[in-house]
Amino acid sequence: MTVKDRWLLWVFLAPTLLLMGLMLFYPMVGTVIDSFHDTSFINPQPRFVGWAVYEKIWTSRQFPEVVWNSVVWTLGVVLLQNILGFFAAMLLNQKLPMQGVTRALVLLPFVLPGVVTAILWRFMYDPQLGLINSLLISAGILDESAAWLASSNTAMAAVIFVAVWKGFPFSMLIYLAALQNVDKSQLEAATIDGAGAWRRLIDVTLPSIREVILVNIVLTLILTFNYFDIVWVLTRGGPQNATHIFPTKIFETGFGQFRFGEAAVYGVFSILILAMLVALYVIVQQGARNRRPTA
């Protein structure tokens, strides 16, 4: 592309920049502005109140609950999803029979729409008709049906389990691609030197896909923190706020109670947490980029 044709770049970019500016970047600012205003169903006209809404949220009983739930939810899903995804990728990277079919089938939860996944698992967890209780009772593990989603002791674990079931194929795909790029000659050299499967994993495979693992973990942290549909359809944040995370709390406060100011404060906090995660992502990516030429 010659210098003379540069105008075309901007013509091509214009609609995208316009749309992203208006629909993604402006709303980020809009949320911060909203957080200093008070609105309610009775008083829909926003009123500037300074830090008052922050103070109200900050001192509320629910705020620490939402933060804690978000931490448990995000770390739980990310750790389990990446461990299971890595394990599945290792398994599907061996030359075993039926590999292609298994790989295709394992991708199904990834494609299954989120609301369908949540409805299916609501049914799986159902105290009367659900398959999970039926299997556990038949196997003699449970004496009587448990209400997995309705008890605040088990609800979070039950929701995390569903998210891992749906999310691990994505991690698996990324790890599988990375594993297939591992230098075969290094693996063979290690085998000749007498390294067993475990040593090859620790000494050759893991070091050479380190960056992919790190980037993938931070990426899933960000995506999981932003998750909405599965949690909302499974529990609506209940029972007794046991599964309320930032996105569900924002939706309920904003569109359930029309308290846009309070929802915006939760929004600002979630933006701050995400900003930290994004900074982590940049650091990890930068580290990966710097190490690559020497590797």
């Binding site: 992203m20 208006l22 629909m23 993604l24 970047f25 402006y26 709303p27 980020m28 600012v29 809009g30 949320t31 909203d34 960000i222 923190f225 932003n226 909405f228 930032f246 996105p247 569900t248 924002i250 939706f251 904003g254 569109f255 846009f260 929802a263 915006a264 939760y266 929004g267 600002v268 979630s270 933006i271 995400l274 995660l277 994004v278 992502y281």
Partner: peptide, 17 residues
Amino acid sequence: LAQMFPHSAIIIPIYKL
């Protein structure tokens, strides 16, 4: 950066638009 924006945090300003 924009692909990491939380939809729940930007939805109210978009709703108002």
